[in-house]
Amino acid sequence: MSSTRSRILETARRLIIEQGPRVSMADVARAAGISRQALYLHFGSRASLLVTVVRDMDEQDGIRTRCEKALTGEEPLEAFRAFLRVWLRYAATIHPVASVLLASRRDDADAAAAWKDRMDELHRGFLAAARRLEAAGRLRPGLAADVAANLAWAMTSVSVWEQLTADRGMRAGDVEEHLIDAVTATLTGDPSPQPVRT
């Protein structure tokens, strides 16, 4: 990746956190010290820029590789718990940008495109994990893999993480453990194999 492109992405990420996703292409160009024309040469639209910002965050963190590695664990339930742990720790990392996109996605098509792009990929990971649990006979009776994936995805969303940490004052580590146990119990019907932390 060119130094100019990297600078644009870093600048856009900072401005999103500071000003919200309604940051304009002109704002980004000015802050990055380039012309609007040069910005449009790198990113043909504002939506393209926002999607690339969140994809770049994922690539820098290596979240896709780490999620895939977690899901290759030999025992399906433990692999699922490992996958949840990787995702929830990353949710804490991306929270500043993700919460801004989440809050604005209903009335900002570009923010919605960036949010949907990343959440669709995350959901595919949850679906792969749920199908593996289903194949191993670990889902509770009557729960289909696609419904299980939807439930797990929603229960561990950035908005839930934010409500528990920011609104309820829970520590991030406690949120992680409680959500992993709650999601596992919801999908399998089994009590948590881990001690509950207070």
Rank of each mutant, 00 (worst) to 15 (best):
A114E: 06
A47L: 13
A112I: 12
W115G: 01
A79Y: 06
E74V: 12
A128I: 12
D117H: 12
H95W: 13
V97Y: 12
R64Y: 09
H95Y: 10
D117C: 10
S48D: 13
M119N: 02
R106K: 14
A136N: 04
F126S: 10
A82D: 08
A152S: 15
R131D: 14
A70I: 06
R118I: 07
L151I: 15
L50H: 01
A149W: 04
A136S: 08
A113R: 08
F83Y: 13
R66D: 05
G142E: 11
R105T: 03
A111I: 00
R46D: 05
G137E: 15
C67H: 01
A79H: 05
V51W: 00
G137L: 15
G137Q: 13
V53M: 04
D146F: 05
A92V: 11
R85V: 14
M57D: 10
T72M: 07
T52H: 08
R132W: 06
E68M: 10
A98P: 06
A91P: 03
L133D: 01
D107F: 04
D117G: 04
H123D: 08
G142D: 09
R140G: 11
L127S: 02
D146S: 12
R132K: 10
E78V: 04
A145L: 10
L122Q: 00
D146M: 03
R66G: 06
A79N: 07
A82G: 02
A152W: 08
W87Q: 01
L71Q: 01
D120G: 07
D58K: 05
A136R: 03
L84Q: 14
L133F: 02
A149Y: 05
A129R: 02
G137I: 15
N150I: 11
W153T: 13
K69V: 05
A112W: 14
R105H: 09
A82W: 00
A136M: 04
R138Q: 15
E74S: 13
T65L: 01
R46P: 05
L133V: 01
A135P: 12
A148E: 06
E74A: 11
E134L: 10
V54Q: 07
W115E: 03
W115N: 02
D58I: 05
R85S: 13
L139P: 08
C67G: 02
R118F: 04
R118S: 09
V51Q: 08
E121N: 07
L127W: 03
L133A: 00
K116R: 15
L143G: 04
R64E: 14
S48H: 08
D58N: 11
L101V: 15
R66K: 15
L151P: 06
A148L: 11
R118A: 09
W153S: 15
V54R: 00
A128Y: 10
R89G: 14
A129N: 02
A70M: 07
P141S: 14
A149L: 04
A82I: 00
R89H: 10
L88V: 03
G142M: 09
E134C: 11
A112T: 12
P96L: 12
